[in-house]
Simulated scan of single mutants.
Amino acid sequence: MTQRIAVVDPGSGNLASVVRAFEKSAEDHDIDAVVKVVTAAADLRLADRIVLPGQGAFAACRRGLDALPGVVEALEERVRGHGVPFLGICVGMQLMATRGLEHGVTLGLGWIPGEVAPMDPRGMDNAPLPLPQMGWNALSFEEGFHPVLDGVKPGDQVYFVHSFAFEAEDPEDVIATTDYGGPVTAIIARGNLAGLQFHVEKSGPIGLAMLANFMRWEP
């Protein structure tokens, strides 16, 4: 049976590469899926899986989401009410938090308690490291802990671009970190929710494997 994957457009761009990555992953891993960019609540109510990408500022992405009539309510209904598998990517992952602290305080969706705060990475000499954290960096996690990481190995590298990081209230919601002047949240998960801080669509075969894992995931 063909699964319908809805990629929500909060107006922050980068959607074409996300859609292409999902289509490539589905093809490579023999998964029957149709991927569609959506801006309407009605489309979310038909989706089997929901993806929220985002790039840029937390507040701008939240405003973009709020500007889509009925979409936040439909997300609550489908994701929280009906348990539809959900994947947040980059700022889309950050929007799952209680609040973001970029350019003031902005409320998130409140699905995973925590806040998105400015990073202050320091090197061995306590000198500031460059921001944004940009480029390939290794993942640290416990193998077998979550299906989204099936087949991925600790130390595998993915592509990051960010200056703010998710600080979860419950450490168990953080299933993978990366190191940039100390541990930084890379993947969060709770129930039918998963979020990736990095650009999975730019992370090569490792990223495509994670997308396939998401498409196969039955939380």
Rank of each mutant, 00 (worst) to 15 (best):
M1D: 11
T2A: 14
Q3P: 15
Q3N: 11
R4Y: 07
A6Q: 06
P10D: 06
G13I: 13
A16G: 14
V18Y: 01
A21K: 01
F22A: 04
F22Y: 05
E23I: 09
K24H: 11
K24I: 10
S25Y: 04
D28E: 15
I31L: 08
I31A: 07
I31E: 03
D32F: 06
V35I: 15
V35N: 01
V38M: 08
A40P: 12
A41Y: 06
A41S: 15
A41E: 04
A42V: 14
A42I: 09
D43P: 09
D43K: 10
L44D: 14
R45D: 15
L46V: 12
L46A: 15
L46Q: 15
D48V: 04
R49T: 04
I50V: 05
L52N: 03
G54Q: 13
G54A: 09
F58N: 00
A59T: 03
A59C: 13
A60D: 14
A60C: 10
C61I: 02
C61W: 02
R63V: 03
R63H: 03
G64F: 08
G64Y: 09
A67C: 11
A67V: 04
L68F: 03
P69R: 08
P69V: 06
V71R: 10
V71D: 11
E73D: 11
E73T: 12
E77A: 14
R78I: 14
G81L: 08
V84C: 13
F86G: 05
V91M: 00
H103F: 02
V105Q: 11
L107P: 08
L107D: 09
L107I: 08
G108D: 03
L109T: 02
L109K: 01
W111R: 00
W111G: 00
I112E: 07
E115C: 09
P118H: 05
M119Y: 14
M119D: 10
M124A: 15
D125E: 04
N126M: 13
P128R: 06
L129P: 02
M134S: 11
A138V: 09
S140E: 14
S140A: 13
S140Y: 11
E143M: 12
F145T: 11
F145G: 14
H146F: 02
H146M: 02
P147Y: 00
D150H: 01
G151A: 05
V152K: 00
D156Q: 05
V158H: 01
H162P: 13
H162Q: 08
H162F: 06
F164G: 01
A168I: 03
D170R: 14
E172Y: 08
D173N: 10
D179R: 10
Y180Q: 13
Y180F: 12
G181L: 04
G181W: 07
P183D: 15
P183G: 14
A186F: 05
A186P: 07
I188Y: 07
I188Q: 06
R190D: 06
N192F: 04
A194W: 00
G195Q: 10
L196I: 09
L196F: 09
F198G: 03
H199I: 09
V200K: 02
V200G: 03
E201Q: 04
E201G: 02
K202A: 00
K202Q: 13
I206L: 13
G207H: 07
L208S: 15
A209M: 06
M210A: 08
N213D: 01
N213I: 00
